[in-house]
Computed example of a mutant assay.
Amino acid sequence: MLTNLFRLDGTPTTIGQGDPAPAMSPGNVVANVVFVNESWTAPAKKVREVTFRGVAFPKSISRATFTDCSFEDCLFLGTSFSEVEFHGCAFINCNLWKARFEQVYLDPDSIVLEARFKVEAANVGVSVFQALLANFAEERQDEFYMQADIRFRRWKRYQIWADLRRKRLTRFKAWTKWLASITYEGLAGFGYRPVRFFVWTVLLFTAVSCINYKVIGDTVAVNGASVAQASFVDAMFYTFSVLTVLGFSSIVPTGEFSKMITVFEALAAIGWLGIFTSVLVKRFLR
């Protein structure tokens, strides 16, 4: 990895306008090079199986196709990509800060940034995945959009601690935002994992059933008759009926405390099911 994430190490070779470009045939390695011209100049528009290591790319790359190429410790600072395709490529610890993408095909999972970026330059991850989101939305690349959105939200979470160090956030707000992000990802994968959210819903509702069985199981009426203690099956049926807003059916609360608990559970369930609906809409109807 580069010593300075925004500058190449050593004394790289400078390639200017009119200078011969390095060989880019399959198997070639282009290393320690700075392209100082404004636009990308390559021996061919289609580059295949070339390794770029420690290369600073120009401000504009357009109408090019890269296939099975590897980009390692490269700099794309403010680079504008237009009508560019990356097939089977890998970006390893490349700095794409303020890069822009238009009509670009690039798998967001091909971008790999080590932990050092999270600490020293989380804004790089935020910048690149935010730019990719706009490209994927325009190109209707829905699967890539989902992957980029997940990674964008993760890098926003890493950025929280950088903002805290710079005193842009209070410690309370930083921890609140971090906890909200962790919870949203854990429960629903930032809205893209409805099956995971469904599993959590079943587990949560079952846990509430256990609480109701212990706390208000002796203050409900089953089929109109008071019972000394409702069975766990009855408690679960009662709980799921309330939390799914279906109604009490054949089991109703009789005590004042059980009625209060039921009210709070029903109100909380409305919000929870609203989130569940939004997850389904986000995943399948975007």
Rank of each mutant, 00 (worst) to 15 (best):
T277K: 11
V34F: 04
L203K: 05
W200M: 11
I182E: 15
F117Q: 01
F284D: 07
V33C: 04
K46W: 03
N223A: 13
V36F: 07
R193M: 13
R100V: 00
V119D: 12
V36W: 09
Y213S: 07
N212P: 02
L204G: 01
W155L: 03
G186T: 05
L96I: 01
M1R: 11
M260R: 06
R48Q: 15
D234Y: 06
R48P: 06
D68V: 09
L5C: 08
N32I: 05
R116S: 13
A122C: 05
R116Q: 10
G224E: 07
T219A: 13
R151V: 08
A148F: 02
K45M: 07
F152N: 02
A269S: 15
E38I: 09
D218R: 10
V36A: 15
A99W: 00
D109T: 05
F35S: 02
V279M: 12
Y105H: 13
F66L: 04
A230M: 10
E265A: 05
K98A: 00
A221H: 05
Q130C: 06
S70D: 14
F91L: 02
N123R: 02
K46S: 15
T201W: 11
N28C: 12
E120H: 01
R53V: 13
E114C: 14
S82Y: 07
C210H: 13
V55E: 00
Y213N: 10
T13D: 05
V29G: 01
A131I: 00
S39T: 12
P20V: 02
K59R: 14
E138P: 00
I275W: 14
S80Y: 08
W178F: 14
I251C: 01
R100Q: 00
Q141Y: 05
T183L: 15
D109F: 01
R171C: 09
A44P: 14
R283V: 02
A230V: 04
F66V: 06
F66Q: 03
F129Q: 00
L179V: 09
R165G: 12
L187N: 03
K46I: 14
L280Y: 09
W155N: 01
I92K: 10
E102W: 11
S258T: 01
V47P: 08
G247Q: 05
G10C: 04
R157V: 07
D73L: 12
V34A: 08
P43Y: 07
G10D: 02
P26T: 02
L75V: 02
